[in-house]
Amino acid sequence: MIGMLKSMATTMKHALDGEKFTVQYPEETPEVSPRFRGVHKFSQERCIWCRQCEDVCPNDTIQIVTDDKRNGEEYNLHIGQCIYCRLCEEVCPVDAILLTQNFEFTGDTKDDLAYDMEELKNVPWYKDIDPLASREPDRGGWIGEGEGEVDYQ
């Protein structure tokens, strides 16, 4: 009997203290940590078309098309298929591909989630955080110094 009363007292205490642990999304947006892995962003200017990301990708999410002189033509990434392992970012020697903290993306069809180079470039930062800078502060990240503006090209 005492145990049962203790149980009931515990839940009543929670009911009365009025604390909530759920978040009213989207009014309250969650804080994601700097290392969080969201949608990719790709920089055509930085890419040297070495294909390492394509090779390392565990489930063939990245597709690169180059011409016969190894100049890049296409860079496609199916974010609906991606498992967000961040291996592409890890192997990239020039930080051309990067996982932003942005987790808010939708598509009406599966095809909408296959991003090409242009769409990958236009993926917005989440809360204007440059992930590279926040993950590894000593490397400076993609953002130009002193500008204060988020523009990584």
Partner: peptide, 14 residues
Amino acid sequence: KEYHNLVTSNEIFQ
């Protein structure tokens, strides 16, 4: 402690 109050010490649970 809260879990023990809620769960393991509850007679019906036992």
